[in-house]
Design a binder for these strands. Structure first.
Lengths: 230, 230
DNA sequence: CGACCATTTGATATGGATCAAGCGATGTGG
DNA sequence: CCACATCGCTTGATCCATATCAAATGGTCG
């Protein structure tokens, strides 16, 4: 298996300098609320880096609009995407001091950027914030568990599982608008673009899905997909 | 891919009834300390279930001695092990109310069992405990990330990575004593026993490792292993 | 010693990777 | 507005790593 992509790197911004704006007196019960008040929105163009592997984890991010890929590139150039972040998702939260993965905007994206130290400091005093930090990490954990279960399955099962995940997360009924390329999907599922593509056509031929355009997928037969997802 | 094991189930104990012994006034700064004071040790025989998928997550566990596998069985009987827990490891910590995975003792094991609600309640009042709950989850997250990176690699790379992980965790120099069977390793790495076995003999032939007995592995050439682990 | 189980080894099959075109959409310059 | 280059995606042909099937070996326990 020597698959996966060479990296198509956009311009990297080492430090997208911001200085945080701590609001020490906040005692909100909505984590999102807290974050929104402490952070500043930033725009990232398609394919630009938000942060890199091994950089100090100074900030924490919340997607306002657009999609982000969290990934790591192995020495031989293979890329593994370990998560896609959609609007509402929080990412970049590390307990260590360095990012273990890199993050890039898949589409033009608006991202709320918050100084980590400010949030952690707040969590120190506000149990509610602390619990919600924990909840965010925990949710990530669950997603990774699902991801692991995907990675040991057949190509059909992986693709089916991926489509169901996306459908669930975007919850726009049966039509899924994919913000990422086939290559992104392949690197997420540990397959090649060719296999992803072929599998989609197989599913289409089996009348399980429709693919009106390459980025738009309609789930025609969810129970078949769920069966594959077993 | 229709690999993996049929489940060799030991006797399941639905509820290993314990009633917790909350010690509300503890303000230790060692999480282990807190847990130890709140929990009671229990013994589990080899291959017995500690808890099952979908059971309510009432307890939280810390391995005192022995090894535990955390796993899930798919509808068609494939088993995926998502973690091995060694002495010192904490498992069973869910934020939801149900266990997402099952847990079994791989060897006879002594496990400290703590009522979750007691710990969570304590975390409510003690920020230090709260942070450490978070740290536990976070460490798990990191391990899963490593696991994902393993699962997209070649058989050699997976086995090499696994051996390095085990060596690091047991830190007994270059000799690794494996508490788990080849089948367990296979189900952890998403391979078959045959492939795991063959890969080990390949590595042995390449003088990268020695396998004096099937459960004992000596790392002879770590740099070669690290190269595979890239 | 003999039965059983875990592991290794061998022979063959196959799913997905790789290599190589082809195709359709999008955008750019003439 | 069209010709053409580019890019992302699909499709086809072949290859290979790992699964599958089958058997032999070895270690453990009664």
């Amino acid at each position: 298996m020597l698959t996966q992509t060479a990296i198509q790197n956009g311009s990297s911004l080492q430090s997208h300098g911001r200085s945080g704006r701590p609001s020490p007196s906040i005692r909100s019960h909505s984590f999102s609320g807290v974050i929104e008040l402490m952070g500043a929105p930033m725009s990232f163009a398609r394919n630009t880096e938000i942060y890199g592997d091994n950089e100090p984890a100074e900030y924490l991010y919340k997607v306002i609009s657009g999609t982000v890929r969290i990934y790591k590139v192995l020495t031989d150039g293979r890329r593994q995407i370990c998560a896609f972040c959609l609007p509402g998702d929080i990412f970049g939260l590390e307990v260590g001091d360095e990012h273990a993965f890199s993050a890039e905007a898949i589409t033009d994206a608006k991202i709320l950027v918050v100084k980590r130290s400010a949030v952690v400091a707040l969590a120190e005093r506000d149990n509610d914030v602390a619990r919600q930090l924990w909840a965010v990490t925990s949710r990530e954990l669950h997603q990774l568990q699902d991801h692991i279960m995907l990675l040991v399955k057949t190509a059909q099962e992986r693709v089916a599982g991926f489509l169901l995940q996306m459908a669930e997360r975007t919850c726009t009924g049966n039509a899924v608008e994919l913000p990422m390329s086939r290559q992104d999907i392949a690197d997420y599922l540990g397959l090649t673009i060719e296999t992803v593509s072929r599998t989609l056509t197989q599913l289409e031929n089996a009348a399980t899905i429709e693919v009106p355009t390459s980025r738009r997928i309609v789930l025609r037969n969810r129970s078949a997909l769920n069966r594959l997802n077993a």
